[in-house]
């Protein structure tokens, strides 16, 4: 076991982990933060996406020890009190979710995308969100939500 210290959603957190402990396991099982989901075991679905030092990463494929000393933002950390983050609000308004399983990862990926490219084209949104799969296949409204969150007219409106 080794000790790691991370900043998670702005708060310092110290925990004992094994070398093989994945960041998502630390979040969900040790810290009880179950907003970050696990949808596959092949690093493909993106349900586990969090921000690590400002970049979207798949928390199922990064060791907690690799993340030691870093800054992590999860879905639990994006709203301000009762007020949803603009990307969350856009997903709500534009029905960017059906069962909601993929949504935390979609929202975190979209936040990263818009931080780096504030007005992406539809094509850029589709390319940049390729690492997030929606089993309900609601991609159309997900793209619309990201467009709306970036202040653009959503497709189909």
């Amino acid at each position: 076991m080794q000790s790691v210290t991370l900043t998670i959603n702005g708060k310092p957190v110290t925990a004992e982990v094994e070398g093989r402990t994945l960041l998502v396991k630390l979040l969900r099982e040790t810290l009880g933060m179950t907003g970050t989901h696990v949808g596959c075991d092949t690093t493909q679905c993106g349900a586990c996406t969090v921000l690590f030092n400002g970049d979207a990463v798949k928390s199922c494929t990064i060791l907690a020890v690799q993340a030691d000393g870093g800054d992590v933002t999860t879905i639990e950390g994006v709203a301000t009190g009762e007020e949803l983050h603009p990307v969350q609000e856009a997903f709500r308004t534009h029905h960017g979710l059906q069962c909601g399983f993929c949504t935390p990862g979609m929202v975190m990926r979209a936040i990263d995308l818009l931080a780096k490219n504030p007005r992406p084209t539809e094509e850029e949104i589709r390319h940049e969100m390729e690492g997030n799969l929606c089993r309900c296949t609601g991609y159309h409204n997900i793209v619309a939500a990201v467009q709306a969150a970036s202040g653009q007219t959503p497709i189909g409106h």
Binding site: D55, A56, V57, I62, G131, N132
Partner: peptide
């Protein structure tokens, strides 16, 4: 290559 999250690591 892959997707954005893969490219970030």
């Amino acid at each position: 290559i892959g997707d954005a999250q893969v490219r970030n690591r």
